[in-house]
Design a protein around this nucleic acid. Structure first.
Lengths: 339, 339
DNA sequence: ACACTTCATTTAATCGTTTAAATAAATATT
DNA sequence: AATATTTATTTAAACGATTAAATGAAGTGT
């Protein structure tokens, strides 16, 4: 129950000054081998751990990287971001950095200042940040006041005017291509279902839908477009609404949580997939091989995006002034049996 | 690109002392309304944010709670822990606390000291910690040296001798009950598949298997017990090995990632569920309603466990000295069509 | 008018580190 | 032997906050 030992305690035990202890720890100056040994022994003896807060206060690097992710409650997007985080850590751990994660919950309306608070609260600790911005957070983090430490944005592009370091994926082109595959299978009326259209990734997926229909001279019908919440229930309800009022032969769900709800309804109603209705989902999960039929989907390279983000951040950390980069990691279509 | 403003800058602009600024921020002493306004205006003007590192150094509470979770790469356990985290935050946010998460990766062999380092690295910042311990981390965090800040353990019990605050779930009894359900459906040879048996939760599930067989006077057969890695592939391989060499009529998989692999094999081989083989999984996911048959499983109350952990921690935070508590949040059996 | 409170604010020490500058001891140079 | 240089260590200020104690100004009672 003793007090946690400080550098002073170590110095006292080793009968040297605190400066010498610091020098031993950081190898910042030469210390005689004999003294070094004494200090090391004292540290060991006291089970001493340096106080990171004090380090950080002195402007020393903390070897801590922050990650902000927007996971909503009961959203399978968790997997996407966890995989992203794993990718980041796979790079960071090798370099002796540690990752600290916080969740912004994608709840903007009343939590915006909470996010902002969190964000600033951590600037002091962290050597750098990786942020998967919510639709609005960009407005805050853009503030030049705050960008005095390196940041890399990931997954979603900011609407910011200035170019910022971003890792993103080709939502537009891969969605375009996948829907085109549907069309080539002679689908005429394809519905589009998504969560809230406010983040860049979702917007791009919708643009792709619009454009590919245009290319095939199919008129976009309001009745076939559904913007719901990112939840199983929302997907289920939308599927009900869609299929009881419209005659469709294809469904694109660009939100994995919702796609479960939609699929559930299709199975329940015994609607033949893909014979009657083609089905395309977003994000790839193991369970998509367990259903009947297995589900064709667009796989986002979450792990690789994490890796890329971490690498870019590390680069910035070393080489303070470099041009902002925007790097695209390609998504791919995992073809199974639902198209 | 200016330097971040400090309390001194605010004091200067407001033409008061730093003490007054601090008093305004913390409402620690009475400050004349007029002065207060001046200070507030200066803070606003400079876009001032207090430095948490300095606060923490002074022993002030940081309103930050740390969470350590053990998520392995490509493990669906992510959902369990994310849900846990959500539960924690649902409580914490109301009280003005923020949650910071770090992943221990459940990789003990070579990362033990990294975990330990992380763990100590954060003590200075955090007001308290919630830890889902890996199988061995307990040994380190038990060290009385380190327990000078409040900790709540969750999900897994430590082998520690001293009683520590723990939130756990009734792995043993619910698993017992579920397997008993299988037995009552006249299943004679039930296989048991799990990930590494080193954390308390898995151990308890195995104990339940052993005991319930005992109760029904069924001899436990080595050939029906498989301990693999927590991965889809491992599950698939084990299922192959099991079903090509043994004649079973029930399978219990107490690891959700592996259960997907097992199920995949069963479907591929067109083995009738539950007619030929009863199937029981662990953890509940939306997709378990999408398969055919839908999957009966044991649902762990991850969100509620998180809530309970946060509540307990908050209680400790307020009321420094209280008896360690061990609280059980009940798991339940979600009955679908695979038994 | 004087001492006594009360009120509002400031001074200065403190938390646990780092680090530039100062110092002391040992070694080299003449 | 006196001086210059190198080596190893210490002193003390600084980082950005908090807070006990000190201070000064205003108000009260006699």
């Amino acid at each position: 129950m003793e007090k946690k030992p400080s550098i002073k305690d170590v110095a006292k035990v080793a009968t040297v000054s605190t400066a010498t202890v610091s020098n031993v720890m950081n190898a910042s100056r030469y210390v005689k081998e004999e003294t070094r040994a004494k200090v090391l022994k004292a540290m060991e003896e006291l089970n001493y751990r340096p106080n990171t807060a004090a380090k950080s206060l002195k402007g020393k690097n903390t070897k801590l990287i922050g990650l902000i992710i927007p996971i909503q409650q009961s959203d399978t997007s968790a997997d996407f971001f966890i995989s992203l985080a794993n990718g980041i850590e796979s790079v960071l751990n090798n370099e002796g950095y540690k990752l600290v994660i916080s969740n912004s919950h994608e709840n903007i309306n009343n939590e915006l200042d909470q996010i902002e608070m969190f964000n600033t609260e951590f600037v002091d600790y962290m050597d750098g940040m990786i942020i998967a911005p919510t639709s609005e957070i960009g407005k805050e983090t853009d503030d030049p006041m705050m960008i005095e430490y390196p940041v890399v944005y990931v997954d979603r592009k900011l609407s910011s005017t200035d170019k910022v370091d971003t890792i993103y994926t080709n939502n537009y082109s891969v969605t375009y291509e996948a829907i085109e595959m549907m069309l080539k299978k002679n689908r005429k009326r394809i519905a589009f279902i998504s969560g809230p259209i406010d983040v860049s990734s979702t917007i791009e997926r919708f643009e792709a839908y619009k454009d590919v229909l245009g290319k095939y001279q199919i008129e976009m019908e309001k009745e076939l477009i559904f913007v719901g919440e990112s939840s199983f229930e929302s997907g289920y309800k939308i599927a009900y609404q869609l299929l009881t009022t419209q005659d469709v032969d294809g469904i694109v769900v660009v939100n994995n949580t919702m796609s479960m709800g939609v699929y559930k309804y299709l199975k329940e109603e015994n609607i033949q997939i893909p014979k009657k209705v083609s089905f395309l989902s977003y994000d790839d999960f193991n369970w998509m091989e367990l259903t009947d039929p297995t589900i064709t989907t667009i796989k986002q390279p979450s792990f690789e995006m994490g890796k890329a983000a971490a690498e870019l951040l590390l680069e910035k950390l070393e080489n303070k002034s470099h041009e902002p980069k925007e790097i695209c990691i390609e998504s791919s279509i995992i073809i199974r049996n639902s198209l």
